[in-house]
Design a protein around this nucleic acid. Sequence first.
DNA 1: TGTTTAACCTTGTATATACAAGGTAGGCTA
DNA 2: TAGCCTACCTTGTATATACAAGGTTAAACA
Lengths: 234, 234
Amino acid sequence: MAQAKFAQIKQFILSRIETGEWQENDRVPSENQLTELFVCSRMTARRALTELVASGVLERTQGVGTFVAGLKSQSSLLVIRNIADEIKDRGHGYSVTPLELKQIDASTAVANALGLEVGNPVFYSVLVHCEQGLPLQVEERFVNPKLVPKYLEQDFRLQTPHEYLSAVAPLTEARHTVEAIMATELLQQRLAIEATEPCLQILRRTWSRQGVVSFARLVHPGSKFKLTSALVNE
Amino acid sequence: MAQAKFAQIKQFILSRIETGEWQENDRVPSENQLTELFVCSRMTARRALTELVASGVLERTQGVGTFVAGLKSQSSLLVIRNIADEIKDRGHGYSVTPLELKQIDASTAVANALGLEVGNPVFYSVLVHCEQGLPLQVEERFVNPKLVPKYLEQDFRLQTPHEYLSAVAPLTEARHTVEAIMATELLQQRLAIEATEPCLQILRRTWSRQGVVSFARLVHPGSKFKLTSALVNE
DNA sequence: TGTTTAACCTTGTATATACAAGGTAGGCTA
DNA sequence: TAGCCTACCTTGTATATACAAGGTTAAACA
């Protein structure tokens, strides 16, 4: 068999959508119709449809039918990768310098982000991630001490905070905000950039089963760092 | 039945991964083992595994077994939404002002992005998208005239370029780059911002079956615009 | 005429079965 | 001992079947 039958059916449907023959919200053949068209069992036709639904190409409603899904083009996905992996994947040298590692009192913003009270103790770390020796990211991180009591005892030259946290408190969710900012003087020093250089800031909150684990502020020089998307559709 | 059997099996596996009982690369029970555990048919056990593989929780290799997938935490997804929808979803007033709509000669950068020769004609449009009357995005767009010959005849106050292009040349892929930049003087005027305000720039290339359809440069004031992620992990 | 009902479509869940295909490990042979 | 080969595990594809559940429509009834 050149290609699995369910894959042929998927191709058949996808090509018709790609050419525009079947438009958004058009009805696609039912499982039984596909069964006749391709001379296969209902389970095989069903598999093709199910997989296309899973990938967002189709939508179905029990008792009604299966339809071409609305354009996903309206939103596409950007990937935020682990900085160390990204640098290594480029074949460049990666190094990290820990600048701070201590306990502080939660400010209002940090307390809100972590779901704690203002003034509660939180663990705080600052690291500079470098590519070929040049700063590419300043990672400022606030950690919930209740969930990660041994955070301050770690050596983040050996294992990034992200790796450590993942091991200690398996994360179940993460939320990000990306924006453009101007660096403060301190950040300018740490990133070795001019006052005129804009920066890309990623705010990242991570959850485990027990609650908010950490709140991180990742700042990149705009001239050196780009977020790139993988793909959409299909 | 309180819950479908395959859903119970999925829950069983997910909870064991969440608690950390099963770690990355650990082997999960085979289809036959699950069949015995849950007193169900192999197809039902298989469905649970298949769906968890689809959602990225598990990985499987024919002839070997099924394993807990590597942390997805390493990369998470950001959503780039249609600007008009985003503003409307916030319940705010949306308006758009077309500034340019003409044919120009492709510069080197544009020719590269569109897969054309330098100096070839390309269609060019500039629009300003406003939220409550304030500029939120400048959309500069270069369009391949071979694929979209009637681009210049459109009225983009009625339909956004993106909507028109989606209808004319169903898109099959899109790639994005996000970075922080300082606005040029012209952009400062168009966005009504100060020279000191950093901007978030999204470069977007879209493909249809026939090739690259358009290349867009979307610039937002950093103080007013944030990209926000939905969620991670399945 | 208006409402209820039943027939018929759709998708959803579940089982039993068969064979194909890929990988591993242990035993057999040279 | 070294290499091959078979038996046995795994996942992958495909079929036939049964009944459940949700929605539409048209016919039957009041």
